[in-house]
């Protein structure tokens, strides 16, 4: 089955890329854009149909590799 993971920066962690994207959007006349935070998205194909097991494994992957818990949060979709 497929598991989707989103990794985002925690609040308060500097995101220069997000800032640059926000400023570019503002410059493109999207003046309503107040803030952009850039994150990462992972599409993971896991060799099981047991949803519970797949999510538990993914959780472990997030903590051990996909996210750095000092600065990032993860969400399994």
């Amino acid at each position: 089955m497929k598991v989707k993971v989103i990794v985002t920066l925690k609040d308060g962690v500097l995101d220069p890329q997000g800032k640059a994207i926000q400023q570019t959007l503002n410059g493109m006349n999207f003046s309503e854009v107040k803030e952009v935070r850039q994150g990462k998205y992972f599409d993971i194909e896991i060799n099981t149909n047991d949803e519970k097991k797949a999510k538990a494994k993914t959780e472990e992957m997030c903590k051990k590799l996909l996210a750095n818990m000092v600065i990032e949060d993860y969400k399994i979709l």
Binding site: V13, L14, P16, Q17, A20, N68, V70, I71
Partner: peptide, 17 residues
């Protein structure tokens, strides 16, 4: 070393990109 956890914290992208 920070990614192994042997040292605390992390090195982020430079402030001015």
């Amino acid at each position: 070393l920070t990614e192994t956890g042997l040292l605390p914290g992390i090195l982020l992208q430079n402030k001015y990109q």
